[in-house]
Simulated scan of single mutants.
Amino acid sequence: MVFALSLSASAQCSLCTKTAQQLGEGPAKGLNNGILMLAFTPLALMAFLGYRWWRSQRPSQS
Rank of each mutant, 00 (worst) to 15 (best):
S60P: 08
Q21S: 14
L7R: 15
R52Y: 01
S6E: 14
S6T: 15
S56G: 10
F3N: 05
N32Q: 06
P59G: 02
P59I: 04
A47P: 00
Q21A: 14
C16M: 11
M46G: 07
F40E: 10
T19E: 02
K18H: 05
P42N: 04
S62K: 01
S56D: 08
G26K: 05
K29N: 08
N33F: 15
L5F: 13
S14Q: 10
L5M: 13
F40Y: 11
G26M: 03
L45W: 10
L5E: 15
E25S: 08
C13N: 13
L49A: 15
A47C: 08
A9R: 14
F3Q: 09
A39Q: 14
C13I: 01
A28R: 12
A20Y: 04
I35M: 01
L45D: 01
M37H: 09
A11L: 06
A44G: 13
R55P: 02
R55K: 11
W53V: 10
A9I: 13
A39H: 11
P27Y: 05
P27N: 08
L23W: 13
A4N: 04
L43K: 05
C16R: 13
K18M: 06
E25C: 00
T19Q: 07
C13V: 00
M37W: 00
R52E: 09
N33P: 00
I35E: 00
G24V: 06
N33S: 14
C16D: 13
T17I: 00
Q22N: 12
L43S: 14
G50A: 14
Y51R: 03
T41R: 01
V2C: 02
S56L: 08
R58S: 12
L36F: 09
S8H: 10
L36R: 15
N33C: 07
N32C: 04
F48Y: 05
R52N: 03
C13Q: 04
S14H: 07
Q61T: 05
V2S: 05
L49H: 11
Q12I: 01
M1G: 10
G30C: 03
W53C: 09
S56Y: 01
L43H: 12
K18E: 01
Y51T: 04
L43A: 15
S14E: 11
S62Y: 02
A47N: 02
F3C: 04
L38S: 11
K29W: 07
Q12T: 06
M46P: 00
A44W: 04
R55S: 06
F40T: 15
N32I: 02
P27S: 09
P27E: 04
C16G: 10
Y51I: 02
G24A: 03
C13M: 02
T19M: 06
P59T: 13
G30W: 00
L43N: 12
A44R: 02
A39Y: 05
A44Y: 04
V2R: 08
S60D: 03
L15T: 03
A9Q: 08
L49Q: 15
A47F: 01
F40W: 11
R55N: 11
